[in-house]
Design a protein around this nucleic acid. Structure first.
Lengths: 246, 246
DNA sequence: CTTCACACCAATGTATACATAAGCCGACCG
DNA sequence: CGGTCGGCTTATGTATACATTGGTGTGAAG
């Protein structure tokens, strides 16, 4: 899980983070194309959870041979997005409430550590300015009630900080888990209350980062994630009553 | 990185954790065989860091065709154990001091979270007994100066606790990072001082776990990892002066 | 009617064949 | 003598062919 994905994607479909636009997709190598294309379709719901496809069908879908598709599927399986059952094809994984909780737990543990590292390294003036501006933008979005935009900015904010941590392996692991929680996040997006608490917590965390205070950063970010995770779990619980599919 | 490796391996070569004995290796499917075989050779140093082999050579080495070998190599690359450079073959990665630090950082963040989860879930009497006995065994090994045995027990102790956390994704991620730090750990093994501090900390952590006190567990385990990680980094620094290869 | 067994089929896992493109070497030109 | 251009070699990436194995369906027996 660690260590992969050097190719930085541009483009923005939903989040700046890691859903590529599929824009320059034709010029990619076949395996990468298969991987990104399938990941995109899964994360955006174009391939719904529960869907099962044979390797041959996937290959047909992407107009490729089975070989690169298979390799892409292996990666997706390691990321936890699909399940392959040897004689039954690959199934797009549904997320149970428990799955979502597990993912958030792991993701948060990693993210808090990333923040700690950033605090220890310190912020440059430019980085500080950028992050402050993002916080302001989120507050603006909140004020105008644009939750979708807020969510995107939130992703960018977290991703921006994580990108400063200087630990590539940690970042790669974070990206994988981020991909897993993405669908559930999108699902509960419309249910979210105005994120005033998050905005305040972001400011608090940013202050701790600016101070370069590692312990304070850990404490605050940990609290932020804890609260946010619990809230999201609650929303998801309501939104699917523990049935399954995310 | 999350989510993989259901097949529980038996056998013990060095650690109970995740270096399979390669014992029933012949009856495995080719891809799995390639993966486990290569991983084994890398972790035990039979394939030294820096070694570069072509896909064809690997295939020959394992008496397989390139296809399953290639798939295994993809997994190993995602785990960060090898690097593939498109026209230059796959290279067994060396670990720099910085790499090792990054791995430990990530690993520790995950492990602490796993411990927290165990604390929250609570220990059964049997689990408590087992863990207490392991602590005692470690103390015995320390008393007799058997550092290698202590190290194995330490691995087992940590692995045992992690296995109780109830979060499969977290465990899988931990296993991947564990594999990465294994070589460096083995390398500095003979340099380690008597682990009296670790023994005391293990007791303290176990006490916190028995109390089911999540915050206390986090605090203590975090302190334990912090200290142990720093110590290991220092040993590694001494042992290779920042040259590279681990 | 239910259950067990056998045979057939098809999907995967593996091997191989082929195309592409990158590195390397040599030759030629400046 | 050095640098650059071009062709050749070869490793990889992809496609395809083949074998294996497990699942399913049918039929017969209890």
């Amino acid at each position: 899980m660690p260590q992969a994905e050097p190719p930085r994607m541009r483009g923005k479909v939903r989040s700046a983070r890691s859903i590529p636009s599929l824009h320059g997709l034709t010029e990619m190598a076949a395996r990468e194309r298969a991987y990104h294309d399938l990941r995109y379709r899964i994360l955006t719901g174009r391939l719904a959870p529960g869907t099962t496809l044979l390797e041959t069908e996937l290959a047909g879908l992407l107009s490729l041979s089975r070989t690169p598709v298979r390799e892409a599927v292996i990666k997706l399986e390691e990321e936890g997005l699909v399940e392959v059952r040897p004689r039954h094809g690959v199934t797009i994984k549904a997320l149970s409430l428990q799955d979502f909780a597990n993912i958030l737990d792991t993701y948060s543990a990693l993210e808090v550590r990333a923040y700690e590292l950033v605090a220890a390294r310190g912020l440059t003036p430019e980085q500080t300015r950028l992050l402050e501006r993002m916080v302001e933008d989120m507050e603006t979005a909140t004020a105008t009630g644009d939750i979708a935009r807020w969510s995107d900015l939130d992703d960018e904010f977290h991703a921006e900080i994580v990108s400063l941590c200087g630990n590539q392996r940690l970042q790669t692991a974070l990206n994988a888990f981020w991909g897993q929680q993405y669908r559930a996040r999108m699902m509960i997006l419309p249910l979210r209350p105005l994120p005033d608490e998050s905005n305040a917590e972001h400011r608090a965390v940013l202050d701790a980062l600016k101070l370069g205070d590692r312990d304070l950063t850990r404490e605050r970010q940990n609290a932020h994630r804890d609260r946010a995770d619990k809230q999201q779990l609650e929303l998801l619980r309501r939104s699917l009553g523990s049935s399954g599919l995310a």
